[in-house]
Amino acid sequence: MPHILITTDYLRPGDEVDRYLRMRGHTTVHTSLAGVRAPERIAEAYAGADAALVGHEPLTADVLRRAQQLRVIVRTGVGYDAIDVAAAGELGITVSNLPGINANAVAEYTLGLLLASARRLVHSASAVAQGAWPRRHGRELRGATLGLLGYGAAARAVVPLAQAFGMRVLCTTGVPNAEQADATVHFVGLPELLAEADYVSVHTALTERSRGLLGPAAFRAMKPTAVLINTARGAIVDEQALAEAVRTGQIAGAALDVTVQEPLPSDSPLRGVDGIVVYSHMAGQTDQARAAAASEGADELLAALAGRPRFAVNTPHLAGPPAKRTG
C-alpha cells in the first residue's frame, strides 16, 4: 500500500484529494512545508513516503537520497526549479509538474499588477490608511507597450487580456518560428523588447540561462518610465541591481510576486525602495487553479505510480539502474 506525502499547504486531511487517494488504497500523510523550510525537517517529512504531492519546498540531492522509498514526486504547479530533477532521475524518482494548470490565474493577476502599478493603487490605499489623501496622477494602459519574457501558457493567456486594454504586445522567446502562431504579437529580440516596452512582464522558467537575466545591463536598456512585473521566479531578476535601478530612476518601478528568498527577508534590498511593491507569491492561487492543480496532481501521481506519467520532466535521466540511496 503506497504511502503518499502531501506537502502542498492548501490540501488538507479529509478533502477531496485525500479521499480520492485513500479510496484507491493509498495511505496519506499531510505535512505542510510552506514558508522557510529547514533541510532536516524536509528530510524527516519524506521518510517512508513512496510518492509526494509537493509545494515549493527545496528537494535537494541530499534530501532525495535520504528518501529511501520515494518513487514519484508531483509538483502541484508549473515551476519545479526547487527540485533537483537530475538527482531524482539518478535515484529512480519520476518528477512531474502540471504545465499550464494556473495560466488563467497568472494572466489575470499579471493584469492586476499592471493596473495597480499604472494607477499607483497600493501607494494610494496605504497613504489613505495612514491619514493622507494622495492625488498623484497615474497612467492608462491603452496605447502602452507590454513586453513578455517567455511565451508559455501564462504569457499566451496574458496576450488577449492586454490587448483588450488596448496594449501593444511584444514577446521575446526561444520557441521555434512555427510555434509563434499569434500574428497580433510582435516577436523581437530581447534588446528591442527592453528598449520599447513600457511594462516588462516575466513569464519564463528559471534555468541557468535565465538566472539573473534582468540585471544592470537590462535595466540600463529599459525606458526610465518602464515598470518591471515578475510573476515567474525571483532569481531571474538581480534584486540588488533592480533596487538600485529604481532608486536612481533608471526605471520607474517594479511589481514583484516572487523574490529570490521567500518569505522576503528583513534585510532584502527590495525593502524601503519607493516604486517597488512586493507581493506574496499569489499569482497562481485562485480557488479554480487550486482545485484544478489538486485534481490533476492526484491523477498524475497515480499515473506515475503505475509507470505512466503524463507530465514527467526528468524521464531521460531514468535510464539505467537507480543510484544507491543513503539515509
Rank of each mutant, 00 (worst) to 15 (best):
P2L: 04
L5S: 13
T8S: 11
D9Y: 13
D9S: 14
R12I: 00
P13A: 09
P13D: 08
P13I: 02
R22N: 00
M23P: 03
T28E: 06
V29E: 15
L33W: 07
L33R: 14
A38N: 10
P39A: 03
R41P: 00
D50Y: 11
A51N: 13
A52P: 12
L53N: 13
A61Q: 12
Q68H: 12
R71H: 05
V74W: 11
A88I: 04
E90V: 03
T94Y: 01
T94S: 14
G100H: 11
G100M: 09
A103S: 15
V106D: 06
A107C: 11
G112K: 01
L114K: 01
L115I: 15
L121D: 10
A125W: 09
S126E: 15
Q130W: 00
P134C: 08
R136H: 11
E140T: 12
A144R: 15
A144W: 00
T145V: 15
L146I: 07
G147L: 09
L149N: 01
A153C: 05
R156I: 06
R156A: 14
V158C: 13
G166R: 04
M167F: 08
V169K: 08
L170R: 12
C171K: 05
T172L: 05
G174E: 04
P176R: 11
P176G: 09
E179G: 02
A181Q: 14
D182L: 03
V185P: 02
G189S: 14
L190V: 07
L194G: 10
L194R: 11
V200C: 09
S201G: 07
G212P: 10
L214C: 08
A217V: 09
A221F: 01
M222D: 02
T231D: 05
D238H: 02
A245F: 07
Q250C: 07
A255T: 02
L264M: 08
D267P: 05
S268L: 07
L270I: 10
V273R: 12
I276H: 08
V278G: 10
S280N: 14
M282V: 14
G284Q: 06
R290A: 02
A291D: 14
A291N: 03
G297F: 01
E300T: 03
A304C: 04
R308W: 00
P309M: 00
R310H: 14
A312L: 09
L318M: 09
K324A: 15
R325T: 06
